[in-house]
Amino acid sequence: MSLLTVRDLRVVIDGLHILHGVELDVAATGVTALLGRNGAGKTTTVRAVMGLVPRTGTVTFDGADITGLPTHQVVRRGIGYAPEDRGVFAQLSVAENLRLAERDPDPAYDLVFELFPELKQRHRQAAGTLSGGQQQMVAIARTLLNGNRLVIADEPTKGLAPKIVTEVADVLARAAESVPVLLVEQNLALVRRIAGRCAVLADGRTAHQGDARALLADEDAARRLLGVGSHQPETTAPEGSSR
């Protein structure tokens, strides 16, 4: 039984067909990874799920059709979203960024500050002056503040130093113990470490769904679907290598 089901998701922006029929099932537990090469439509898929771009098709969350809902109502159903560019409000302080995300009467600040003690120290600092890793922490913290039933993280490790990548991965792994996570990720080592199932997009369509480790273990399939080795030499791996 999947928590989030996407069927025949199509997105057209400015006359360009970005997605032509994405299928996606996010498991009710653990981390589901959304993979694919650059430009395959991963970010557009999650933006469409969130209602941030006009879309057609069906998106079902916990049995209810949420396709037509505006973004804020999608979120209020219990979906926390950390976007690709982190979506941190640069002019606002860290505390204000977090306060803005509060939806529950009793936000889980204890958990957030336990995971990211740095954010407590930098409470009053303008978020725009934080490092990339710290900004990513703010973005993830905002999703963990509320009792969400799903967290969507879009490339949370993009552009981060290897040490921070490990830190973020640890947090995601820990978060996934209590809440299912949909993780868009290029870092295959990280995927292998924390993801259970995965879906692979290619050219705006779903090319494969299945067990993440099984896919990554199958070198032919991985190369065909993800272009591993030839297309992603820049991937920063926290441990070992993805080849």
Binding site: L52, F89, A90, L92, A101, R103, R142
Partner: peptide, 13 residues
């Protein structure tokens, strides 16, 4: 700063 992100935090902007 970013209207869309405000809605993505569950706020009816």
């Amino acid at each position: 700063e970013d209207r869309a992100m405000v809605t993505a935090l569950g706020i009816d902007v």
